[in-house]
Design a protein around this nucleic acid. Structure first.
Lengths: 204, 204
DNA sequence: ACCTGAACACCGTTCAAGT
DNA sequence: ACCTGAACACCGTTCAAGT
């Protein structure tokens, strides 16, 4: 399973720590993500992680990065599926975003954790989240070119779309809609988004 | 300043602790919100807060409750101003929401903290956040009755609108739009929201 | 009724020391 | 180069004891 030789105790301690961290948040939530718990799970001393992460926040940032990579893959897969089926790409992106959030709640919470707000400190994280953003802006531009979305600054429209889908995901994750069926709300939101961005044609 | 007699050391320790907590998050962020720090600030032993809060989470929930009350007041003030000026009430609500978030970032983060997602454990918090939600649904209903917003389930439309405004606030707070001017984006989003909810009339 | 002080099990972080 | 073990200053939480 491990190709490289083991330098000391682990072939790739950084990788092992990251995987342990992902398991931890899935099993016990974000609060359980501590450097000591991750070290324990990997079977290494509590000081060992410091060889690979400057501090706890760096580990959290690395986990967030993994989360963004996973979401990016999910979004791109959804966009390709939509293209094959000649369905609306933007709607597909929105649905995929909310579905990823509901499937990986802990990952979403880490990705948008308060402590990581200062993106200047985590360039790799900033890069992957920026690529995600770019994918969305590009789809908006394409839809505009195809005459399916209203004219206007694609950056602004993309931010509005992202706001809606992100807000929907977060409100659902934070239990703000206790009496609702998540997937129904997600559909209502994307429908409203479609209407909001659609080119106006005639009355009603 | 303190009307009641002091039962022991403080007239109203619960109130004092809450105020200290609000100061702490404003000055040093959410991470600084610890029971021991709050107790220190009030000048009481680290075990004293347990007379008024079951655990750290209960304190966080109480702070969140204060945040919701503040936001509710801001939203209602905005709605009244809009009514006086015959401006659109929904747009005013959206702008007020984002402005409150930008003015009180720490409060917002506590209000939507992951650890409080289980609303069944904090009935008072659930109540005030539910009232906030109701205010929004009601404005949507009114706007529909006045023919300014498309027909449809007001709950669904309200959730879509809330998603958009909440997502916008959170993305701004979490530094996901590093190159943007917050207030410009907020305006773009509410404009887009207006368009999305507006009754369709004629082409373009 | 309300608060204190000691105690316990956890953290993050550092650092000399080991291999 | 990579990891360990002891140490320090912090937590949350509990509990007997004080007023």
């Amino acid at each position: 399973m491990r190709a490289r030789k083991q330098p000391y105790h682990h072939g790739d301690l950084r990788r092992s720590l990251l995987e342990a961290a992902l398991q931890l948040i899935d099993e016990q939530g974000v609060a359980a993500l501590t450097l000591r718990a991750v070290a324990r799970r990997v079977g290494v001393s509590h000081a060992a992680p410091y060889r690979h992460f400057n501090d706890r926040e760096s580990l959290v940032a690395a986990v967030a990065e993994e989360g963004f990579r996973g979401m990016l893959a999910a979004l791109q897969a959804a966009a390709e599926r939509a293209a094959r089926n000649k369905a609306d790409g933007l709607t597909a992106l929105g649905v995929a975003y909310v579905e990823y959030a509901l499937a990986h709640p802990s990952a979403l919470r880490v990705m948008f954790a308060t402590e990581l707000a200062d993106r200047a400190r985590y360039p790799a994280l900033a890069a992957v989240s920026s690529v995600t953003h770019d994918v969305l802006v590009q789809r908006v531009s394409e839809a505009q070119a195809a005459g399916r979305v209203v004219a206007g600054d694609p950056q602004e429209l993309a931010f509005a779309a992202w706001s809606m889908v992100h807000g929907c995901a977060m409100l659902l994750l934070d239990g703000q809609m206790p009496d609702a069926v998540p997937r129904d709300l997600a559909k209502a939101v994307t429908r409203c988004l479609e209407l909001g961005l659609a080119v106006r044609k005639g009355a009603k």
